[in-house]
Amino acid sequence: MNFLLSFWRSTVGAKVVVAVTGLILLGFTLFHMIGNLQVFLGADEMNTYGAFLHKPEILWAGRAVVFGSIGLHIVAQAKLVAATAIARPTGYRKWNAKASTIYSRTMKYTGPIILIFFVLHLLNLTTGAEFGFYVHPEPYLQDGNVPRAFENLTSLLGNPLWATFYIVANLALASHLWHGAFSMTKTLGLSGVRQLRLARVIASVFTLTVTGGNIAITTACVLHLVK
């Protein structure tokens, strides 16, 4: 197992862990966005979908993958950031970006914003904690133990403050994915010039699709366009 330890300890190895877990999380964000588009279909479709996801084997397999990926993503990146934080003890008086972007340089800030959002999102809509103007719909549960996803979501995002926060979080996600979804292809070894150009396009379209869909859902809820 020495080789795995050596891989993990190296900067390239830890980056690969960040990239692979990031790739899994990309899949999750897309799946989550598409699933939630059902809010436009109405309460019945959305709640049926919610009940389907609450089948124990689906729920816990999904949670294991998502939580495991997020955990590894953060631990590996934190290790890299900690090591790199001391790589330049004295900074420059002047420094001009040549190719790096605001998106690439703010990864370590957009990441924690997304994490905070993720935690609050789970507290409200998964555990059902009531705080910050958020009040459960009544009745809260359907079919015994499954939260009523549609009423939950529209009740939370009907609040302009929560909706604003969700939109801000999605902009942070957009910034994070704009760099991350492309950067991971190079980390995982995609080195062809044409292939990288294609990867850039796919990463951009992916980012705009996922965050655009999420923001559309949020906007529809706060404007009470979905009933």
């Binding site: 300890r9 980056k15 190719a99 690439s104 492309f182 950067s183």
Partner: peptide
């Protein structure tokens, strides 16, 4: 790669300023 790490350089985040 391991020597590069041992020297105390930072990690690559694909900014691209190096190449520029």
């Amino acid at each position: 790669v391991l020597q590069m790490d041992a020297e105390g350089f930072g990690h690559c985040t694909n900014h691209g300023d190096c190449s520029a």
